[in-house]
Design a protein around this nucleic acid. Structure first.
Length: 600
RNA sequence: GCGAGCGUAGCACAAUGGAUAGUGUAGCGGCCUCCGAAGCCGUCGAUCCGGGUUCGACUCCCGGCGCUCGCACCA
C-alpha cells in the first residue's frame, strides 16, 4: 500500500497538495535529463528535519554506490539539471555525502496557503490516494448482553480514526460492527433469564440486569452439572430456531444496541452495519464445503481444521499444533468459521478492496491464520481478494503496568470511564474559567473530557501498551487534547477580536517575513505528509504528533508575532496563517474523531 | 517448552534505513503596561546486552536478558 506516492510530472503546474510529489517528479525529470537510468534510480524524497530544509532526496547515495560513482558529484549534476520552476520555488542545497535539501521559499509557501484554503480543498488534495476503493473497517465489536468496558475503548477510538482517515483519502468506507451476538454464552443467559429475571430491573437497567442473569446462569451451571446440560439445551433450542428462544435473543440484542448507541454517540461513532456473528449462521456451510472440496481444511480429532505447513508454528507437525479451528468436533461453529464467512461476504457483497479489523494484539495468531486461509481459499476459487489488515493494539494498563481495573479489582465500564472524564474536565474548566455559565462549562467539559480519552489513545503508537493516566491526558501541557483544543480556542478568540471570520481579511497578505511566520507556514505545508503516513500505516498517532507540533509551532508564532497590528499587509498575512492553522487543526482533529471548541 | 509484541533520559512518549536520536513532564533559570500565562523562551538528561549486514542502524539479521501476551474445540 503506497498510496499518494508521487507520480507523474507536475513540474510547472500548480503546487501540489503534497509538495514532496513535485520534488520527486522534478528529481526524476532531472535524472532523465542527465541520462540516468530511471528504472534504477529512486529519488527517495521525504520530509526533512526543518534545520535541513522541507524535503530531502536521499536516493543519490544508494544509486551512486551501486553505480560506483561519486555521490557528491552526481548530486551536483542532478541539481544543475533541475527545471526552472523547481529552482524558483525551492532553495536547493547539497549537504554531507550527497543529501539534496529542498527548502520552500516564502513565496512558494504563500502559494500553497492560498491554494488550500478550505476543508474541501484539503480533501480534494488528499482524496486521490484511495479514490475508487472500498474499505470495510471492522471495529468496536462488543459482545451483546454485556456492557462495554475499558477493553473496548481502543478498538472504538482507533477504528473510528482509521475510518475517517481512509475516507478522507478518497475511499468509500463501510463501518461494520461485528457484534459478538451468537455463541455459547446465550445458553447460560437464557437459563438464568428464565429463572431469575427481574422485570423492574430489566426496565430500569437492562444491560446490568442481563449481566447479572448471565452471571447467575454461569454460577448455577458448573462443569458436569445437570444444570449445565439444561443450559446447553437452551443453546440448542436457540440455534435450531425455537421461536421463544429467538424472541428472547432478539430482545437481548435490542437492549444491547441501545446501550452501545449511547456510548457511540458520545464518541462520535455511527456504524453503517451491525453484521454480527449471527448474521453469518446460514453462510457457514458454504465455508465448510469449499474448504473441504479444495482440500484446504482437514478433519483432525473430529474437528475441521486448517494447517499452514509453510509457517512452522501453524504446521501440522509442530511441537504443539495450533490449527485454525473451522468447525468443532461437535459440529458447532467457532469464530474462525464466522470470520471466514465474513471475509467472503465483504468481498462478494461489499466488493471490498481493503478490510481492516481493529482488535487487540492477543488475537494476532488468529488473524494471521485467517488471512493465510482466506488467501489460499480465494486464490483457488478466483474470488476477489481484498487487502487484509489486522490493526492490532496493545493493552490499556494502570500505572502499575497491569491491566486497568477499578480500585476493588473490577472491570471499568466504558460509561463510567467517560463520565469520570467529563467530571474531571468540568473541575478543570471551572477552575480555569469560573466566570463562564455552568451550562457552557458542562458543554466544554464533555468535549474536553471525551476528547482527552480519545486523544490519549490516538497520540501514541497503537502497537505498544498504553498507561492510562487521568492526570496526563487531562493535562493542559504536552501532547494532549486540552493543549490542542486550547490552541484552537485561542485562534477563534483572535478572529472574534478582529471582527472577521477565518478566511476573511487576508487578501492583502503579500509575503511571509518573520522567522515565526515562515516556520509556521512550513509546518502547515506538511499536513499532506502526515495524512499520508497515518493513513498508509493505519497509525493515527502520526497525525496526532503532527497536529501537536503544529499547535506548538502556532503557540510560538502567537507569542513572537502579534497578529492584530495596524499595518494592513502584516495583519493580513498573519490572519491568513491563523486561518490555515485553524483549518488544519480542526480538520485534523475531526479526522481523529475529536470535536473542537470556539471557547474553553 | 514453542511463538508473538514490546524494551529509548527519573517518569510518559516520538523518530517512513539517513545528517548532531526529537518532545512532554519532573528539576533549574527567565518572559504578563502586549490578541486567552490552559502560553512562550532557555537549560539539564537516554537507544537493554553482544555480534553481524550497510556508505549510513533506535530501525534490518543472529544470539542473549527483561516485561506483556498467545498456544485444540472461548472470541
Amino acid at each position: 500500500m503506497q498510496a499518494n506516492r508521487p507520480r507523474g510530472l507536475s513540474v510547472g503546474m500548480q503546487v501540489s497538495f503534497n509538495p514532496a510529489a513535485d520534488v520527486e517528479a522534478a528529481m526524476l525529470q532531472a535524472a532523465t535529463a542527465i541520462g540516468l537510468d530511471c528504472a534504477r534510480f529512486a529519488p527517495e524524497v521525504r520530509t526533512a528535519d526543518p534545520k535541513h530544509g522541507d524535503f530531502q532526496a536521499n536516493g543519490v547515495l544508494a544509486f551512486a554506490k551501486r553505480e560506483k560513482q561519486n555521490p557528491r558529484a552526481l548530486a551536483e549534476k542532478l541539481v544543475a539539471a533541475l527545471d526552472a520552476v523547481t529552482r524558483e520555488r525551492y532553495d536547493v542545497t547539497i549537504a554531507g555525502p550527497g543529501f539534496i535539501n529542498f527548502a520552500l521559499k516564502p513565496a512558494a509557501l504563500l502559494t500553497w496557503l492560498r491554494a488550500f484554503a478550505s476543508r474541501d480543498a484539503l480533501k480534494s488534495g488528499a482524496a486521490t490516494a484511495y479514490a475508487g476503493k472500498t474499505w470495510v473497517v471492522d471495529y468496536s465489536s462488543p459482545n451483546t448482553a454485556k456492557q462495554m468496558h475499558v477493553g473496548h475503548l481502543r478498538s472504538a477510538v482507533i477504528g473510528e480514526a482509521i475510518c475517517r482517515l481512509v475516507a478522507f483519502s478518497g475511499a468509500n468506507v463501510i463501518r461494520d460492527n461485528h457484534l459478538g451476538d451468537w455463541g455459547t454464552q446465550f445458553g447460560k443467559l437464557i437459563y438464568g433469564y428464565k429463572r431469575w429475571a427481574d422485570p423492574a430491573a430489566l426496565e430500569r437497567e437492562p444491560i446490568e440486569e442481563l449481566e447479572r442473569l448471565y452471571k447467575a446462569g454461569n454460577d448455577a451451571t458448573p462443569d458436569g452439572s445437570p444444570a449445565l446440560d439444561e443450559a446447553r439445551e437452551e443453546l440448542v433450542k436457540l440455534q435450531s430456531g425455537n421461536p421463544e428462544s429467538l424472541a428472547l435473543w432478539k430482545t437481548f440484542t435490542e437492549v444491547s444496541q441501545r446501550a452501545f448507541d449511547s456510548i457511540y454517540t458520545r464518541l462520535g461513532i455511527k456504524f453503517d452495519h451491525y453484521l454480527g456473528e449471527s448474521f453469518y449462521n446460514d453462510k457457514l456451510d458454504r465455508v465448510y464445503n469449499e474448504l473441504t472440496e479444495l482440500k484446504i481444511a482437514d478433519v483432525s480429532d473430529g474437528a475441521l481444521v486448517v494447517f499452514h505447513d509453510e509457517i512452522p508454528r501453524f504446521a501440522r507437525n509442530a511441537e504443539r499444533p495450533n490449527p485454525f479451528m473451522v468447525r468443532k468436533a461437535d459440529g458447532a461453529s467457532g469464530y474462525a468459521s464466522t470470520d471466514l464467512a465474513t471475509a467472503l461476504y465483504r468481498s462478494e457483497h461489499f466488493k471490498a478492496d481493503g478490510i481492516a479489523i481493529v482488535t487487540d494484539f492477543r488475537q494476532g495468531d488468529h488473524f494471521e491464520q485467517l488471512f493465510l486461509t482466506v488467501k489460499k481459499w480465494f486464490g483457488a476459487k478466483n474470488y476477489h481478494l481484498p487487502e487484509l489488515h489486522h490493526v492490532s493494539f496493545g493493552a490499556v494498563t494502570g500505572e502499575d503496568g497491569k491491566a486497568l481495573k477499578t480500585r476493588d479489582g473490577g472491570t471499568i465500564k466504558l460509561k463510567s470511564l467517560l463520565d469520570e472524564a467529563e467530571e474531571r474536565a468540568y473541575a478543570v474548566v471551572s477552575e480555569k474559567n469560573a466566570e463562564l455559565p455552568e451550562a457552557e462549562r458542562r458543554a466544554i467539559a464533555n468535549i474536553v473530557g471525551v476528547g482527552s480519552v480519545q486523544y490519549a489513545d490516538l497520540s501514541q503508537n497503537r502497537s505498544s501498551n498504553y498507561v492510562f493516566s487521568w492526570d496526563k491526558m487531562l493535562s493542559l501541557e504536552g501532547n494532549t487534547a486540552p493543549y490542542l483544543l486550547y490552541a484552537v480556542a485561542r485562534i477563534h478568540s483572535i478572529f472574534r477580536k478582529a471582527g472577521v471570520k477565518p478566511g476573511e481579511a487576508e487578501t492583502a497578505a503579500a509575503s511571509l517575513e518573520t522567522p515565526a511566520e515562515i516556520s509556521l507556514a512550513r509546518k502547515l505545508v506538511k499536513f499532506a505528509d502526515a495524512i499520508r503516513l497515518a493513513t498508509d500505516t493505519l497509525r493515527p498517532h502520526f497525525l496526532s504528533l503532527y497536529l501537536y507540533e503544529l499547535a506548538s509551532e502556532y503557540s510560538s508564532f502567537n507569542n513572537a508575532d502579534k497578529v492584530l497590528v495596524d499595518d494592513p499587509a502584516i495583519r493580513a498575512r498573519r490572519l491568513l496563517l491563523c486561518a490555515r492553522t485553524l483549518l488544519v487543526l480542526e480538520t485534523g482533529l475531526d479526522l481523529l474523531g475529536l470535536r473542537t471548541l470556539q471557547r474553553m
